[in-house]
Design a protein around this nucleic acid. Structure first.
Lengths: 194, 194
DNA sequence: GTCTATATATTGATAGAC
DNA sequence: GTCTATCAATATATAGAC
Protein backbone atom coordinates (compact mmCIF):
# COMPACT_ATOMS: atom_id res chain seq x y z
CA UNK A 1 0.00 0.00 0.00
CA UNK A 2 1.24 3.49 -0.82
CA UNK A 3 2.16 5.92 1.90
CA UNK A 4 -0.31 8.45 0.56
CA UNK A 5 -4.05 7.86 0.60
CA UNK A 6 -5.54 8.00 -2.88
CA UNK A 7 -9.02 9.33 -3.53
CA UNK A 8 -10.21 5.82 -4.33
CA UNK A 9 -9.00 4.58 -0.97
CA UNK A 10 -10.74 7.44 0.78
CA UNK A 11 -14.03 6.59 -0.91
CA UNK A 12 -13.53 2.96 -0.06
CA UNK A 13 -13.08 3.89 3.58
CA UNK A 14 -16.22 6.04 3.51
CA UNK A 15 -18.17 3.07 2.19
CA UNK A 16 -16.79 0.77 4.87
CA UNK A 17 -17.58 3.17 7.70
CA UNK A 18 -21.08 3.88 6.40
CA UNK A 19 -21.72 0.16 6.00
CA UNK A 20 -20.32 -0.49 9.46
CA UNK A 21 -22.85 1.83 11.05
CA UNK A 22 -25.78 0.58 8.97
CA UNK A 23 -24.98 -3.08 9.52
CA UNK A 24 -25.11 -2.37 13.22
CA UNK A 25 -28.26 -0.26 13.26
CA UNK A 26 -30.32 -2.15 10.67
CA UNK A 27 -28.60 -5.48 10.41
CA UNK A 28 -26.73 -6.90 7.45
CA UNK A 29 -29.67 -8.34 5.54
CA UNK A 30 -31.79 -5.24 5.99
CA UNK A 31 -29.10 -2.90 4.65
CA UNK A 32 -29.21 -2.39 0.89
CA UNK A 33 -26.63 -1.02 -1.49
CA UNK A 34 -28.77 2.05 -1.87
CA UNK A 35 -28.69 2.60 1.88
CA UNK A 36 -24.92 2.37 1.97
CA UNK A 37 -24.44 4.54 -1.10
CA UNK A 38 -26.74 7.21 0.29
CA UNK A 39 -25.00 7.19 3.67
CA UNK A 40 -21.56 7.31 2.06
CA UNK A 41 -22.67 10.10 -0.29
CA UNK A 42 -21.81 8.37 -3.54
CA UNK A 43 -23.94 7.28 -6.52
CA UNK A 44 -25.43 3.83 -6.27
CA UNK A 45 -23.88 2.03 -9.19
CA UNK A 46 -20.45 3.40 -8.50
CA UNK A 47 -19.18 1.30 -5.73
CA UNK A 48 -19.04 -1.95 -7.59
CA UNK A 49 -15.74 -0.47 -8.59
CA UNK A 50 -14.70 -0.68 -4.94
CA UNK A 51 -16.48 -3.89 -3.93
CA UNK A 52 -17.56 -6.75 -6.09
CA UNK A 53 -20.40 -7.82 -3.82
CA UNK A 54 -22.23 -7.08 -0.59
CA UNK A 55 -20.39 -9.94 1.08
CA UNK A 56 -17.10 -8.26 0.29
CA UNK A 57 -18.31 -5.12 2.01
CA UNK A 58 -19.14 -7.18 5.06
CA UNK A 59 -15.68 -8.70 5.05
CA UNK A 60 -14.18 -5.23 4.88
CA UNK A 61 -16.45 -4.12 7.72
CA UNK A 62 -15.32 -7.07 9.82
CA UNK A 63 -11.69 -6.18 9.10
CA UNK A 64 -12.43 -2.62 10.10
CA UNK A 65 -14.01 -3.73 13.36
CA UNK A 66 -11.16 -6.08 14.12
CA UNK A 67 -8.69 -3.23 13.77
CA UNK A 68 -10.85 -1.02 15.99
CA UNK A 69 -11.04 -3.67 18.68
CA UNK A 70 -7.30 -4.31 18.54
CA UNK A 71 -6.64 -0.60 18.91
CA UNK A 72 -9.03 -0.32 21.84
CA UNK A 73 -7.54 -3.27 23.69
CA UNK A 74 -4.05 -1.96 23.08
CA UNK A 75 -5.10 1.40 24.45
CA UNK A 76 -6.52 -0.22 27.57
CA UNK A 77 -3.33 -2.20 28.05
CA UNK A 78 -1.30 1.00 27.82
CA UNK A 79 -3.48 3.19 30.03
CA UNK A 80 -4.69 0.79 32.72
CA UNK A 81 -2.14 -0.76 35.05
CA UNK A 82 -3.89 -3.66 36.74
CA UNK A 83 -5.72 -6.53 35.04
CA UNK A 84 -8.80 -6.17 37.27
CA UNK A 85 -9.06 -2.54 36.21
CA UNK A 86 -8.85 -3.57 32.56
CA UNK A 87 -11.61 -6.12 33.01
CA UNK A 88 -13.78 -3.49 34.63
CA UNK A 89 -13.06 -1.16 31.75
CA UNK A 90 -14.40 -3.83 29.46
CA UNK A 91 -17.56 -4.14 31.55
CA UNK A 92 -17.98 -0.39 31.42
CA UNK A 93 -18.79 -0.66 27.72
CA UNK A 94 -22.33 -1.45 28.85
CA UNK A 95 -22.58 2.01 30.39
CA UNK A 96 -20.56 3.99 27.85
CA UNK A 97 -22.51 2.62 24.90
CA UNK A 98 -25.76 2.55 26.82
CA UNK A 99 -27.98 4.23 24.26
CA UNK A 100 -26.81 2.13 21.33
CA UNK A 101 -26.91 -1.05 23.39
CA UNK A 102 -30.52 -0.46 24.35
CA UNK A 103 -31.49 0.31 20.78
CA UNK A 104 -29.48 -2.14 18.69
CA UNK A 105 -27.82 -4.56 21.07
CA UNK A 106 -24.13 -5.39 20.84
CA UNK A 107 -22.64 -4.96 17.35
CA UNK A 108 -20.62 -8.17 17.63
CA UNK A 109 -23.38 -10.26 19.12
CA UNK A 110 -26.17 -9.15 16.85
CA UNK A 111 -24.05 -9.55 13.71
CA UNK A 112 -22.91 -13.02 14.68
CA UNK A 113 -26.42 -14.12 15.56
CA UNK A 114 -27.79 -12.83 12.28
CA UNK A 115 -25.07 -14.47 10.20
CA UNK A 116 -25.27 -17.74 12.14
CA UNK A 117 -28.72 -18.37 10.70
CA UNK A 118 -28.16 -18.13 6.97
CA UNK A 119 -24.55 -17.10 6.34
CA UNK A 120 -22.47 -19.52 8.33
CA UNK A 121 -19.26 -18.93 6.37
CA UNK A 122 -19.40 -15.21 7.06
CA UNK A 123 -20.32 -15.81 10.69
CA UNK A 124 -17.15 -17.77 11.27
CA UNK A 125 -15.24 -14.72 10.12
CA UNK A 126 -17.31 -12.44 12.36
CA UNK A 127 -16.48 -14.75 15.27
CA UNK A 128 -12.92 -13.44 15.06
CA UNK A 129 -14.15 -10.30 16.83
CA UNK A 130 -15.13 -12.38 19.83
CA UNK A 131 -11.84 -14.21 19.64
CA UNK A 132 -9.92 -10.95 20.07
CA UNK A 133 -11.81 -10.15 23.26
CA UNK A 134 -11.58 -13.71 24.50
CA UNK A 135 -7.81 -13.84 24.12
CA UNK A 136 -7.38 -10.46 25.78
CA UNK A 137 -9.77 -11.24 28.65
CA UNK A 138 -8.13 -14.58 29.14
CA UNK A 139 -4.77 -12.89 29.49
CA UNK A 140 -6.10 -10.50 32.11
CA UNK A 141 -7.54 -13.34 34.18
CA UNK A 142 -4.23 -15.17 33.95
CA UNK A 143 -2.44 -12.05 35.18
CA UNK A 144 -4.89 -12.06 38.09
CA UNK A 145 -3.74 -15.54 39.00
CA UNK A 146 -6.68 -17.55 37.68
CA UNK A 147 -4.38 -20.03 35.96
CA UNK A 148 -6.11 -22.64 33.88
CA UNK A 149 -9.56 -21.25 34.70
CA UNK A 150 -8.63 -18.00 32.97
CA UNK A 151 -10.13 -18.92 29.60
CA UNK A 152 -13.30 -20.26 31.18
CA UNK A 153 -13.70 -16.97 33.03
CA UNK A 154 -13.08 -15.05 29.81
CA UNK A 155 -15.82 -16.92 27.97
CA UNK A 156 -18.17 -16.52 30.91
CA UNK A 157 -17.58 -12.78 31.04
CA UNK A 158 -18.17 -12.52 27.30
CA UNK A 159 -21.41 -14.46 27.68
CA UNK A 160 -22.78 -12.38 30.55
CA UNK A 161 -21.95 -9.18 28.68
CA UNK A 162 -23.78 -10.48 25.62
CA UNK A 163 -26.74 -11.52 27.69
CA UNK A 164 -26.88 -8.13 29.38
CA UNK A 165 -26.72 -6.31 26.06
CA UNK A 166 -29.41 -8.52 24.56
CA UNK A 167 -31.81 -8.22 27.47
CA UNK A 168 -31.13 -4.51 27.59
CA UNK A 169 -32.27 -4.26 23.97
CA UNK A 170 -35.35 -6.34 24.77
CA UNK A 171 -36.47 -4.27 27.74
CA UNK A 172 -34.86 -0.92 26.88
CA UNK A 173 -33.95 -0.66 30.52
CA UNK A 174 -30.82 1.34 31.38
CA UNK A 175 -31.16 0.45 35.06
CA UNK A 176 -30.85 -3.20 34.22
CA UNK A 177 -27.62 -2.58 32.29
CA UNK A 178 -26.20 -0.75 35.28
CA UNK A 179 -27.14 -3.49 37.71
CA UNK A 180 -25.56 -6.14 35.52
CA UNK A 181 -22.41 -4.04 35.18
CA UNK A 182 -22.21 -3.64 38.96
CA UNK A 183 -22.75 -7.35 39.45
CA UNK A 184 -19.94 -8.12 37.02
CA UNK A 185 -17.57 -5.77 38.81
CA UNK A 186 -18.25 -7.61 42.05
CA UNK A 187 -17.68 -10.89 40.29
CA UNK A 188 -14.33 -9.71 38.94
CA UNK A 189 -13.22 -8.85 42.46
CA UNK A 190 -14.48 -12.17 43.81
CA UNK A 191 -12.65 -14.16 41.15
CA UNK A 192 -9.25 -12.77 42.05
CA UNK A 193 -6.73 -15.52 42.51
CA UNK A 194 -9.25 -18.31 41.98
CA UNK B 1 -64.20 -20.22 18.28
CA UNK B 2 -66.12 -23.30 17.24
CA UNK B 3 -65.54 -26.59 18.96
CA UNK B 4 -64.66 -28.25 15.67
CA UNK B 5 -61.58 -27.33 13.67
CA UNK B 6 -62.41 -26.25 10.15
CA UNK B 7 -60.15 -26.96 7.22
CA UNK B 8 -59.28 -23.28 7.02
CA UNK B 9 -58.16 -23.25 10.61
CA UNK B 10 -56.02 -26.32 10.04
CA UNK B 11 -54.28 -24.67 7.10
CA UNK B 12 -53.82 -21.55 9.14
CA UNK B 13 -52.16 -23.56 11.87
CA UNK B 14 -49.89 -25.25 9.32
CA UNK B 15 -48.79 -21.84 8.09
CA UNK B 16 -48.09 -20.61 11.61
CA UNK B 17 -46.05 -23.66 12.55
CA UNK B 18 -44.05 -23.59 9.32
CA UNK B 19 -43.40 -19.88 9.77
CA UNK B 20 -42.45 -20.43 13.39
CA UNK B 21 -39.71 -22.86 12.40
CA UNK B 22 -38.45 -20.77 9.50
CA UNK B 23 -38.41 -17.53 11.50
CA UNK B 24 -36.22 -19.32 13.99
CA UNK B 25 -33.86 -21.01 11.55
CA UNK B 26 -33.52 -18.22 8.97
CA UNK B 27 -34.73 -15.16 10.80
CA UNK B 28 -37.84 -13.12 10.07
CA UNK B 29 -36.45 -10.87 7.35
CA UNK B 30 -34.77 -13.75 5.53
CA UNK B 31 -37.93 -15.82 5.38
CA UNK B 32 -40.08 -15.16 2.32
CA UNK B 33 -43.68 -15.98 1.59
CA UNK B 34 -42.45 -18.57 -0.88
CA UNK B 35 -40.43 -20.25 1.85
CA UNK B 36 -43.39 -20.44 4.19
CA UNK B 37 -45.78 -21.59 1.48
CA UNK B 38 -43.38 -24.31 0.38
CA UNK B 39 -42.83 -25.48 3.96
CA UNK B 40 -46.55 -25.46 4.70
CA UNK B 41 -47.29 -27.29 1.46
CA UNK B 42 -49.71 -24.76 0.03
CA UNK B 43 -49.61 -22.60 -3.13
CA UNK B 44 -47.91 -19.25 -2.75
CA UNK B 45 -50.68 -16.86 -3.50
CA UNK B 46 -53.18 -18.75 -1.42
CA UNK B 47 -52.40 -17.71 2.05
CA UNK B 48 -53.28 -14.07 1.67
CA UNK B 49 -56.66 -15.50 2.42
CA UNK B 50 -55.39 -16.50 5.85
CA UNK B 51 -53.05 -13.58 6.54
CA UNK B 52 -53.17 -10.10 5.14
CA UNK B 53 -49.44 -9.46 5.53
CA UNK B 54 -46.18 -10.94 6.67
CA UNK B 55 -46.38 -8.94 9.87
CA UNK B 56 -49.65 -10.63 10.70
CA UNK B 57 -48.00 -14.01 10.35
CA UNK B 58 -45.33 -12.90 12.78
CA UNK B 59 -47.96 -11.79 15.25
CA UNK B 60 -49.62 -15.18 14.95
CA UNK B 61 -46.23 -16.87 15.43
CA UNK B 62 -45.62 -14.82 18.57
CA UNK B 63 -49.05 -15.79 19.88
CA UNK B 64 -48.23 -19.41 19.13
CA UNK B 65 -44.94 -19.18 20.99
CA UNK B 66 -46.56 -17.47 23.95
CA UNK B 67 -49.04 -20.33 24.25
CA UNK B 68 -46.21 -22.88 23.99
CA UNK B 69 -44.24 -21.15 26.72
CA UNK B 70 -47.26 -20.89 29.00
CA UNK B 71 -47.94 -24.58 28.52
CA UNK B 72 -44.34 -25.48 29.25
CA UNK B 73 -44.16 -23.39 32.41
CA UNK B 74 -47.46 -24.82 33.60
CA UNK B 75 -46.15 -28.31 33.00
CA UNK B 76 -43.03 -27.56 35.01
CA UNK B 77 -45.12 -26.17 37.84
CA UNK B 78 -47.20 -29.34 37.88
CA UNK B 79 -44.40 -31.85 37.59
CA UNK B 80 -41.60 -30.29 39.66
CA UNK B 81 -42.14 -29.80 43.37
CA UNK B 82 -39.44 -27.39 44.49
CA UNK B 83 -38.69 -23.96 43.00
CA UNK B 84 -34.93 -24.65 42.79
CA UNK B 85 -35.71 -27.75 40.73
CA UNK B 86 -37.91 -25.67 38.43
CA UNK B 87 -35.17 -23.12 37.92
CA UNK B 88 -32.73 -25.90 37.07
CA UNK B 89 -35.23 -27.31 34.62
CA UNK B 90 -35.22 -23.93 32.92
CA UNK B 91 -31.42 -23.94 32.75
CA UNK B 92 -31.54 -27.43 31.27
CA UNK B 93 -33.02 -25.95 28.08
CA UNK B 94 -29.42 -25.21 27.11
CA UNK B 95 -28.67 -28.92 27.08
CA UNK B 96 -31.98 -30.24 25.75
CA UNK B 97 -31.99 -27.85 22.79
CA UNK B 98 -28.24 -28.03 22.37
CA UNK B 99 -28.11 -28.62 18.63
CA UNK B 100 -30.56 -25.86 17.74
CA UNK B 101 -28.96 -23.46 20.20
CA UNK B 102 -25.55 -23.95 18.63
CA UNK B 103 -26.94 -23.48 15.14
CA UNK B 104 -29.53 -20.74 15.49
CA UNK B 105 -29.21 -19.34 19.00
CA UNK B 106 -32.24 -18.86 21.22
CA UNK B 107 -35.53 -18.37 19.34
CA UNK B 108 -36.67 -15.61 21.69
CA UNK B 109 -33.36 -13.79 21.84
CA UNK B 110 -32.56 -13.88 18.14
CA UNK B 111 -36.05 -12.77 17.15
CA UNK B 112 -36.06 -9.88 19.60
CA UNK B 113 -32.61 -8.76 18.55
CA UNK B 114 -33.56 -8.83 14.88
CA UNK B 115 -36.80 -6.93 15.41
CA UNK B 116 -35.17 -4.40 17.74
CA UNK B 117 -33.18 -3.02 14.83
CA UNK B 118 -35.82 -2.18 12.28
CA UNK B 119 -39.20 -3.32 13.60
CA UNK B 120 -39.46 -1.86 17.04
CA UNK B 121 -43.25 -2.14 17.27
CA UNK B 122 -43.12 -5.86 16.58
CA UNK B 123 -40.20 -6.29 18.95
CA UNK B 124 -42.21 -4.94 21.84
CA UNK B 125 -44.74 -7.68 21.17
CA UNK B 126 -42.00 -10.30 20.96
CA UNK B 127 -40.72 -9.07 24.33
CA UNK B 128 -43.85 -10.61 25.86
CA UNK B 129 -42.14 -14.00 25.52
CA UNK B 130 -39.39 -12.83 27.85
CA UNK B 131 -41.96 -11.39 30.18
CA UNK B 132 -43.60 -14.79 30.62
CA UNK B 133 -40.29 -16.31 31.68
CA UNK B 134 -39.40 -13.36 33.83
CA UNK B 135 -42.63 -13.50 35.80
CA UNK B 136 -42.35 -17.24 36.25
CA UNK B 137 -38.67 -17.13 37.25
CA UNK B 138 -39.37 -14.28 39.62
CA UNK B 139 -42.05 -16.35 41.32
CA UNK B 140 -39.68 -19.27 41.78
CA UNK B 141 -37.04 -17.05 43.37
CA UNK B 142 -39.65 -15.60 45.68
CA UNK B 143 -40.69 -19.09 46.70
CA UNK B 144 -37.02 -19.72 47.49
CA UNK B 145 -37.08 -16.81 49.90
CA UNK B 146 -35.28 -14.21 47.79
CA UNK B 147 -37.86 -11.59 48.61
CA UNK B 148 -37.42 -8.31 46.82
CA UNK B 149 -34.30 -9.51 45.01
CA UNK B 150 -36.37 -12.16 43.23
CA UNK B 151 -37.04 -10.11 40.11
CA UNK B 152 -33.43 -9.00 39.86
CA UNK B 153 -32.37 -12.63 40.02
CA UNK B 154 -34.92 -13.53 37.37
CA UNK B 155 -33.62 -10.92 34.96
CA UNK B 156 -30.05 -11.98 35.66
CA UNK B 157 -30.82 -15.61 34.97
CA UNK B 158 -32.56 -14.66 31.73
CA UNK B 159 -29.54 -12.61 30.70
CA UNK B 160 -26.97 -15.31 31.43
CA UNK B 161 -29.06 -17.86 29.55
CA UNK B 162 -29.23 -15.51 26.57
CA UNK B 163 -25.52 -14.86 26.70
CA UNK B 164 -24.77 -18.56 26.87
CA UNK B 165 -27.03 -19.30 23.91
CA UNK B 166 -25.51 -16.48 21.89
CA UNK B 167 -21.90 -17.41 22.58
CA UNK B 168 -22.75 -21.03 21.93
CA UNK B 169 -23.98 -20.05 18.48
CA UNK B 170 -20.82 -18.01 17.92
CA UNK B 171 -18.40 -20.77 18.88
CA UNK B 172 -20.55 -23.85 18.14
CA UNK B 173 -19.16 -25.29 21.34
CA UNK B 174 -21.37 -27.75 23.22
CA UNK B 175 -18.87 -28.00 26.06
CA UNK B 176 -19.24 -24.31 26.71
CA UNK B 177 -23.04 -24.63 26.96
CA UNK B 178 -22.62 -27.43 29.49
CA UNK B 179 -20.16 -25.48 31.58
CA UNK B 180 -22.45 -22.44 31.67
CA UNK B 181 -25.40 -24.65 32.61
CA UNK B 182 -23.39 -26.21 35.46
CA UNK B 183 -22.30 -22.78 36.62
CA UNK B 184 -25.91 -21.59 36.68
CA UNK B 185 -27.01 -24.62 38.70
CA UNK B 186 -24.38 -23.80 41.29
CA UNK B 187 -25.53 -20.21 41.31
CA UNK B 188 -29.14 -21.25 41.89
CA UNK B 189 -28.06 -23.24 44.92
CA UNK B 190 -25.93 -20.37 46.19
CA UNK B 191 -28.75 -17.87 45.88
CA UNK B 192 -31.12 -19.81 48.12
CA UNK B 193 -32.61 -17.60 50.75
CA UNK B 194 -30.57 -14.57 49.74
C1' DG C 1 -12.15 6.39 -11.81
C1' DT C 2 -16.87 8.02 -11.84
C1' DC C 3 -21.39 7.97 -13.18
C1' DT C 4 -26.04 6.74 -15.74
C1' DA C 5 -28.82 3.42 -17.35
C1' DT C 6 -30.34 -0.94 -17.01
C1' DA C 7 -30.47 -6.14 -16.49
C1' DT C 8 -32.32 -9.89 -13.76
C1' DA C 9 -34.24 -12.04 -9.80
C1' DT C 10 -37.03 -11.90 -5.85
C1' DT C 11 -39.82 -9.65 -2.78
C1' DG C 12 -44.53 -8.72 -0.58
C1' DA C 13 -48.98 -8.32 -2.27
C1' DT C 14 -53.48 -8.43 -5.65
C1' DA C 15 -56.98 -9.72 -9.07
C1' DG C 16 -59.88 -12.71 -10.58
C1' DA C 17 -61.00 -17.54 -12.51
C1' DC C 18 -62.69 -21.67 -10.60
C1' DG D 1 -62.05 -21.43 -0.05
C1' DT D 2 -58.42 -22.52 -3.35
C1' DC D 3 -55.53 -21.62 -6.96
C1' DT D 4 -53.10 -19.25 -11.22
C1' DA D 5 -51.38 -15.37 -13.05
C1' DT D 6 -49.44 -11.31 -12.31
C1' DC D 7 -48.42 -6.62 -10.31
C1' DA D 8 -45.27 -3.00 -8.49
C1' DA D 9 -41.32 -2.34 -5.78
C1' DT D 10 -36.90 -3.41 -4.51
C1' DA D 11 -32.81 -6.19 -4.38
C1' DT D 12 -28.04 -7.27 -6.14
C1' DA D 13 -25.35 -6.72 -9.92
C1' DT D 14 -23.56 -5.21 -14.88
C1' DA D 15 -22.58 -2.59 -19.20
C1' DG D 16 -20.84 0.97 -21.09
C1' DA D 17 -20.66 6.24 -21.77
C1' DC D 18 -17.85 9.82 -20.06
Amino acid sequence: MAATTSKGQRIRQQIVEAANTLFYQRGYNQTSFSDIAAAAGIPRGNFYYHFRSKDQILEAVIEFRLLSIEGMLQEWDDSIERPAGRLKRYVKILLNEEQDMLRYGCPMGSLNLELAKTRLALQSRAAAMFELFRTWLSRQFRLMGCGERADEHALHLLAVMQGAALLGAVYKDAGFLRREAARLEDWIDSVRGQ
